[in-house]
Nucleic acid binder design. Structure first.
Lengths: 128, 128
DNA sequence: TCCGACCCTCACATAGATGTGAAGGTCAAG
DNA sequence: CTTGACCTTCACATCTATGTGAGGGTCGGA
């Protein structure tokens, strides 16, 4: 699959897909003519990368973390040095922090929306 | 409370607290001499802001969202126009997306860590 | 009174993610 | 063979969050 197709299927601009390669997060193969050649799995991969970027995870971390997201039961303990494990634990904790903050804010927003909507259409009001 | 104290209590650099004010996310009062004067509640507020910033939520959105995080049961439907509500719903959904991505990645990292640690110290192995 | 620890504003610098466009190669269809 | 739709690299521009520092004001204690 060439870059244009992947871009269309993911909604991610070509520029960003090249950036993902430049930062080592998603490195495609190459055709004889130099064109990038993405596999089918690159679709999920690219979406996951974008999701993490949007959640504020820097490319440096994504690059470190992706190898262990790749394995789906198949453990090919790629390099798992103690340092890598420590880093992964820190990143896991930092992700938990982000999740906590996001959840609390989202829930507060949800409650707010529900309350206001409830006040606006009292006939649908449910006992809170 | 002056900016230095708030900075110490939150671990957030003074520069950033001034930035929070500049962007309208956390606007303190002023003493007679021009010094910023923060309330006690600013501690939580500042921490929440930092948490959201780290989770990739832009200041523009945080500013919109904070007013409805403020109320703790006390509904003073500040401006709640339909447009604001729509925006809040979009932000809520976008936060849910972030949470999903983060959770999936974090869980994958956790599984990976557990697996590797389990393989490393088999005497502590638990049936998976 | 003067020094040190605070505070102020202003402004420039950096780093990361992203936009935009130029100059040019590949290839299939007309 | 030419045209058009792709692709390539390179490079500069932008926006946001953050660092850093200069130049200067406030104020309490030695």
């Amino acid at each position: 699959m060439r870059i244009g197709a992947l871009s269309e299927r993911t909604g991610i601009p070509r520029r960003m897909l090249r950036y993902y390669e430049e930062t080592g997060m998603l490195v495609p193969g190459r055709c004889g003519n130099g064109y990038r050649d993405y596999e089918e799995r690159s679709v999920d991969r690219a979406l996951q990368i974008r999701g993490l970027l949007e959640a504020g995870v820097p490319t440096r971390v994504i690059r470190q973390v992706l190898p262990c997201l790749k394995l789906q039961g198949a453990i090919h303990d790629f390099d798992a040095t103690p340092e890598t494990l420590d880093l992964l634990e820190r990143e896991r904790d930092s992700m938990s922090d982000r999740i906590e903050h996001l959840s609390r804010s989202r829930d507060a927003i949800s409650r707010y929306i529900d309350t206001v909507r409830g006040a606006r259409s009292p006939e649908r009001r449910v006992a809170a």
